[in-house]
Amino acid sequence: MNIFRLTGDLSHLAAIIILLLKIWKSRSCAGISGKSQILFAIVFTTRYLDLLSTFISLYNSCMKVIYIGCAYATVYMIYMKFRATYDGNHDSFRVEFLVVPVGGLAVLINHDFSFMEILWTFSIYLESVAILPQLFMISKTGEAETITTHYLFCLGLYRALYIFNWVWRFYFEGFFDLIAIVAGVVQTILYCDFFYLYVTKVLKGKKLSLPA
């Protein structure tokens, strides 16, 4: 554990909680992509199956349980509790174009051709692109609520901190996991455009809206 990984995990946790609180407090999931949230629920489920087989640390297990629990709670709020506020018309990204290639890639490029390992690899690849339906939705509507941008910023920050974590681990532990690193870098790049808008607009007190 190093400071980048800890702050990365906490930033990830903050993102998840910001999203849950936004939906809960406003009683609305307007502007949130239910498809991205389903993808994240799939990501956590397929990655954290090792909760049942491997114990790493109390921290590790607790965080996994919290992430999975929050992911399903978010999906429940979007598709059940506050379904009436879900903006399905604008959430039109075709997720099969992500899930199918990612599944194929996980079978082809992995550390070990075993059930658990392929699921882990699938979750890593899927996480790297799971935010695309959300970004697509924002580009389609041309705007995002400020609280939604805070959520996205925390999520992107988590990815960026994980890259620093891998640099740290490579230098001080000689550890690197190429699959996680490549997927993580891809994922972080997807946030770059958003980071730019966040810094130039949201942090200056303006609402995030895209030019028509």
Binding site: D9, H12, D50, T54, K64, H111, E117, W120, D177, A180
Partner: peptide
């Protein structure tokens, strides 16, 4: 190298 020995990250 056995990179996949343990996935200790979240």
């Amino acid at each position: 190298a056995d990179e996949s020995a343990s996935h200790d990250e979240l």
